[in-house]
């Protein structure tokens, strides 16, 4: 029996807080969009603003953590075992084949995860922050001289990003079940370590 710590305390705090904030941002955001009514429009708007500030703070801390601990290297894309990972999800997993990539403290992410999370970090999150900030500060930008469709474009991108996040969330949650037991990955993210199969 051996246990390696994969996810440090801050790592887990950051992950779960971010998950919660993004979920709440999605709920309040879609309420502002008119998809449903939960908090009431004004409260949804205020919550969305507050949550985005909280998320930005968290992301700043997380960025600091990634840079100072060298954790950012975990997200460097690699082609090593990329094909094997894809093959595992497409065929191996149905045959009960073993996971092709062993998790290690310094390489806790498989090549597909690296790609997905890197995309999440450099694409979706910055796009959401940028479009969100433009959306929020639009009235202060004296932007009425701008093209009439500007805010439309900003909001469309922001909503696209939100749908992207939702799709990511669905896939992400499902893929947690692909560990050696269905709940193993989830448990690891909660307690920080994984037990060997």
């Amino acid at each position: 029996m051996s246990r390696i710590i994969l996810y440090t305390r801050f790592n887990r705090f950051w992950h779960w807080t971010q998950a919660l904030l993004i979920l709440l941002l999605a709920v309040t955001g879609f309420e502002v969009r008119g998809t449903f009514r939960i908090f009431g429009y004004l409260r949804a708007v205020n919550l969305h603003h507050g949550l985005s500030l909280a998320l930005m703070t968290l992301v700043l801390f997380a960025a600091f953590w990634h840079l100072t601990t060298g954790e950012w290297r975990q997200y460097l894309p690699t082609r090593v075992f990329l094909k094997e990972m894809a093959a595992f999800y497409l065929t191996g997993i149905f045959r009960g084949a073993p996971h092709p990539v062993r998790k290690e403290r310094t390489a806790k992410l498989n090549p597909l995860q690296r790609l997905a999370y890197l995309g999440f970090k450099v694409l979706i999150i910055p796009v959401q922050f940028t479009t969100g900030a433009l959306y929020f500060f639009y009235p202060n930008l004296n932007a009425h001289a701008w093209p009439a469709g500007f805010l439309w474009g900003v909001s469309t991108l922001h909503v696209l990003g939100a749908f992207g996040l939702l799709a990511f969330l669905v896939g992400h949650v499902y893929l947690t079940t692909t560990g050696h037991t269905p709940l193993a990955n989830l448990k690891a993210m909660l307690v920080g370590y994984e037990e060997d199969a």
Partner: peptide, 9 residues
């Protein structure tokens, strides 16, 4: 103009 909650692409 674009009005949040009213307009959608």
């Amino acid at each position: 103009f674009y009005l949040p909650g009213r307009d959608r692409a």
